[in-house]
Design a protein around this nucleic acid. Structure first.
Length: 918
RNA sequence: GGGCCUGUAGCUCAGUAGGUUAGAGCGCACCCCUGAUAAGGGUGAGGUCCUUGGUUCGAUUCCAAGCAGGCCCA
């Protein structure tokens, strides 16, 4: 006969199989229906504010795993704060302007860009950005990211654009902004500036020349001494202002016929194998000397040193023209070099180039070489095939060319030092992050704010048509800002200067009233770097400064830095109180993800395969302070972890099917084991809370997983099955356990809610309304805090002993199992032989031990031999009596009371009661 | 090439303020159960703590160099 139907077995509709890809969208719809985000803010209105300010992703392409890592971490922070009673709005944003979108739109044009009016082109860029904003929005929502998705901030919003203008004005009036030269990629065929991404590298055959330059103030004892410079661009020689040596390298003065040459020692052996070295000096020693100019007799050239000088090609001495090279330009400040740039838009030399004026650089190349030859300065002329930048449109070689740009100065008004002083006021997580930002601020050059592109916010600068003065005044700034606020920045391209400026606006310098508009737009980093101002200060529900910025470590150069610079320049304060940095996503071998390696994990695929909650579990299981490794195998393993959490919830739910709040047992009346379970729960809550406070989510994850595995599945839930299933439904033994089960369930489902919001909500759905205290969503519930009343050192010490004993007994039971003595542990009887002093303790807890060890009987007796205190001998034997067909325990009473029923005395009592009820 | 960071079991992570046999969860192997069942339980095997030097009575831990990888520069 089966007694199964007389047991209280678990019942629940919570399925074992999650089918997250199919079910998660249901919860998304539900959250939208109940307007969860708004409700959460309502709940905490007026409470302490916590602002996590979202760093805007670029509005291009689908989200990848890096976005996933970033936004899930943010979401956990936000949800944690919301459940903890903080007013924690989360306004997501997008970075909308910029070259990549412009490039994509340009690629899709059916006619040349020049034939399309600027505002129409910009409209296409705007449409393009919109498409991806909508796409990414849905993708982020699908990940379970909670936020104000109805009202995200966009850097292309008119109000946002207006803020950019006003901030620029503030920085300008503070004297931090100036106009200067800087070399950029330039295609003189298309007559346009090019961005890095518009450059293709192809092999090109170039001249490779070695030029002799005499020392102006010959420091050598020898006569006829020349320094040998090497270059592949003779046409840049008119712009020469310096020659650079490597500071650490050795330079050798060698004898060649009647002349003596100076060049890098290791290269001299290659170029002049049979020559004699007269002297060797370090590059450093020659710094500050002057040599004759390669082109203009009346000028000279300064000897400088630079670590980028190559000792692999040429002579180890390079010609420096800050107007035509980025590296060359970088030496400008250190050596106070002039930026000479005698080339116009079409690649023609200007009057500045003297006799070469009017020549296109290619013709000039020949002329310059001829002149060098005539003067006897051209030592060698070869050609070289090297990788050289080419224009993506016309495919012709491009040049580097200095043009007028707008800069934020790091030095004016002691700005750099001001920023450096403010860095320590921010909390940087992890700690090393402060070193990185500090080093970068220390070293960074002036910030070039201007770009020669179409898709962005125009620089609000006017130029007087009469005196050429650059005009930026309070009035002009406000006029532009207001215009952008009302009509967006496209209006800049639709209107003439006089339509934008106030009516009787006159040049402050000459009084003239006609102006031209600046053609350049802002660097997009300036736009995103202004977000704290454009978003936090303009929305009534937000607050400046932000409580936290949370981004990948690359943002030390990017957003962390640009935001800091903008904020200090405009407000004299950092825009954030704390900055949290995370690593990058890599594959399971620690390598970066790339299509060519074939190791890319696509979050959208994984959502369809394993679900967002499993993906979120991956985020949480990774230590974000280093790189996060992902692969489908790693995610599969997290699927296993997920099932542990899920099945435990299922068990908890199943055993509460007949429980009501009114049946809860007061703490004082709980069985000891159940009180101990509450104690453990509270230890876990305390540990988890500490981990959350320090943003150590992977620690919280581990604590919880260990708790579910060891404390719950491996111990408490396993042990109390007997009580739950076998005892009378309404017995105190059962209700005591259920009381604690409910507490465990409610506590853990809340704590796990930020990690796995979908599953937590699914659990919540399966809870009786009675348990939920009218919370329609687990996310609207309050975060659990530890209950100190549940902690008891005495109880804890007692159970340390019991659990240690349990471990020892389990080893013995396993031996018995291997020997074939028992199978199920209920087939066993455990005999403990102990020291006289321990006898009472163990005798007293025999019933507890029988339950905790899940054996049919425990006997305790005095050991026959001498034992130390605490020492014991554990014996395992087959249990006496017969197996009770109801509770499966072995007992001598089985079949004794009623020979027809093979059940034990305890079960008879329950059965009689049940029959009596019927 | 430079700055910052990372490197502990197959995987994800603890840990050692320098000191007996370096831990956990997962995975794996073997076993039990069949009343959490495409579940649950038990036991166990896995480690030159990246490498090499140095400091020390003693180094996975401190120092230096190197290797591998990541981010940012050049």
């Amino acid at each position: 006969m089966s007694y199964k139907e007389t047991l209280n077995l678990p019942k629940t509709n919570f399925p074992m199989k999650a089918n997250l890809p199919l079910n998660e969208p249901r919860f998304l719809r539900y959250w939208e229906e109940i307007n969860l985000y708004k409700r959460l803010l309502e709940k905490n209105r007026g409470k302490e504010v916590f602002i996590l300010h979202d760093g805007p992703p670029y509005a291009n392409g689908d989200i990848h795993l890096g976005h996933t890592l970033n936004k899930v971490l943010k979401d956990i922070v936000v949800r944690y704060h919301l459940m903890n009673g903080f007013y924690a709005p989360f306004v997501p944003g997008w970075d909308c302007h910029g070259q990549p979108i412009e490039y994509e739109v340009e690629k899709r044009l059916d006619r040349p860009k020049a034939e399309i009016p600027r505002d129409q082109f910009r409209q296409r860029c705007r449409d393009y950005a919109r498409v991806f904003i909508e796409r990414q929005k849905e993708e982020f929502k699908r990940l379970g990211i909670l936020g104000d998705w109805e009202n995200p901030y966009l850097t292309m919003d008119p109000a946002y654009e207006a803020t950019i203008i006003r901030i620029f004005g503030r920085m300008y009036f503070r004297g931090l902004v100036y106009r200067g030269l800087k070399p950029i990629f330039w295609c003189y065929h298309c007559e346009t500036a090019l961005a890095e991404a518009e450059i293709e590298y192809h092999d090109k055959k170039s001249d490779s020349i070695t030029v002799k330059l005499a020392f102006d103030d010959n420091p050598w004892e020898e006569e006829n001494v020349f320094l040998l410079i090497w270059t592949t661009t003779p046409w840049t020689l008119p712009a020469n202002v310096a020659v650079a040596l490597h500071p650490e390298a050795n330079y050798s003065l060698i004898e060649f016929g009647k002349e003596k040459y100076l060049l890098a020692e290791e290269l001299s052996r290659k170029l002049f194998p049979n020559s004699r070295s007269l002297k060797v000096v370090k590059g450093q020693e020659l710094e500050g000397r002057k040599v004759s100019h390669p082109v203009f007799d009346e000028k000279n050239s300064l000897v400088v040193t630079a670590p980028f000088v190559s000792l692999e090609h040429g002579t180890g001495i390079v010609h420096i023209a800050p107007g035509h090279g980025e590296e060359d330009f970088s030496l400008k400040d250190k050596f106070n070099l002039e930026v000479v740039m005698p080339v116009d838009n079409s690649g023609k030399f200007t009057v500045e180039a003297g006799k070469y004026s009017g020549m296109v650089i290619d013709e000039a190349n020949e002329a310059i070489l001829n002149d060098l030859e005539k003067k006897g300065l051209l030592l060698r002329r070869d050609s070289i095939v090297h990788s050289y930048p080419h224009c993506w449109r016309c495919k012709k070689p491009v040049i580097f060319r200095a043009t007028k740009q707008w800069f934020l100065s790091m030095e004016k008004g002691d700005f750099r030092q001001q920023v450096l002083n403010l860095i320590p006021k921010v909390k940087w997580i992890p700690l090393w992050s402060i070193n990185r930002i500090t080093a970068m601020i220390k070293e960074r050059p002036d910030w070039c704010l201007s770009r020669q592109r179409s898709w962005g916010v125009p620089l609000p600068v006017f130029y007087c048509q009469n005196c050429q003065e650059e005009v930026i005044t309070e009035n002009s700034i406000e006029a532009v800002a207001t215009l952008f606020e009302n009509e967006g920045s496209d209006s800049w391209f639709k209107k003439e200067a006089d339509e934008i400026l106030p009516e009787d606006f006159a040049c402050p310098k000459c009084g003239n009233r006609s102006f031209e508009k600046e053609d350049d737009i802002f660097d997009v980093w300036f736009e995103s770097g202004s977000s704290h101002e454009a978003v936090l200060k303009t929305r009534s529900d937000l607050r400046w400064p932000a409580s936290l910025y949370l981004e990948g470590s690359d943002q030390h150069r990017g957003w962390f830095q640009t935001s800091l610079l903008v904020s200090v320049a405009a407000n004299n304060k950092p825009p954030y109180q704390a900055v949290l940095t995370h690593g990058f996503t890599v594959d399971d071998k620690g390598r970066k993800m790339s299509k060519s390696l074939g190791n890319v994990v696509d979050p959208l695929d994984e959502i369809k395969r394993v679900g967002a909650d499993v993906l979120r579990l991956w985020v949480v299981s990774s230590d974000y302070s280093k790189d996060a490794a992902a692969s489908s195998e790693i995610l599969d393993k997290l699927g296993e972890v997920y099932r542990r959490f899920r099945n435990t919830f299922r068990f908890l739910l199943g055993n509460l099917y007949d429980f009501e709040n009114s049946q809860a047992v007061p703490y004082e009346n709980l069985l000891e084991l159940d009180r101990y379970a509450l104690l453990r729960l509270n230890r876990v809550v305390a540990q988890v809370n500490k981990a959350f406070e320090n943003y150590r989510f992977h620690r919280a994850y581990k604590i919880l997983l260990n708790y579910f595995t060891n404390d719950l599945s491996g111990f408490y839930l396993d042990v109390i099955k007997d009580r739950l299933y076998v005892s009378e439904k309404d017995s105190i033994a059962r209700r005591s356990a259920q009381t604690v089960l409910l507490e465990i369930l409610l506590t853990t489902v809340k704590i796990l809610a930020p990690f796995i919001p979908f599953t937590a909500e699914e659990v919540w759905f399966n809870l009786k309304p009675d348990f939920k205290k009218e919370c329609e969503s687990v996310h609207l519930s309050d975060w659990p805090s530890p209950v100190s009343a549940y902690l008891s050192p005495i109880l804890e010490r007692r159970w340390d002993v019991i659990l240690a004993l349990r471990e020892e007994v389990f080893k013995k039971l396993e031996e018995a199992r291997t020997d074939g003595l028992i199978g199920n542990s209920l087939e066993a009887k455990v005999v403990l032989e102990v020291n006289q002093k321990d006898l009472d303790f163990y005798r007293e807890i025999i019933p507890l031990l029988e339950e905790v060890l899940i054996v049919s009987r425990v006997e305790v007796r005095l050991a026959g031999e001498e034992l130390e205190e605490g020492e014991k001998i554990i014996l395992v034997d087959k249990a006496d009596g017969e197996k009770c067909e109801r509770c499966w325990k072995y007992d001598r009473s089985v079949g004794k009371i009623n020979p027809l029923k093979k059940v034990c005395a305890r079960c008879i009592r329950v059965l009689n009661k049940l029959e009596g009820e019927q």
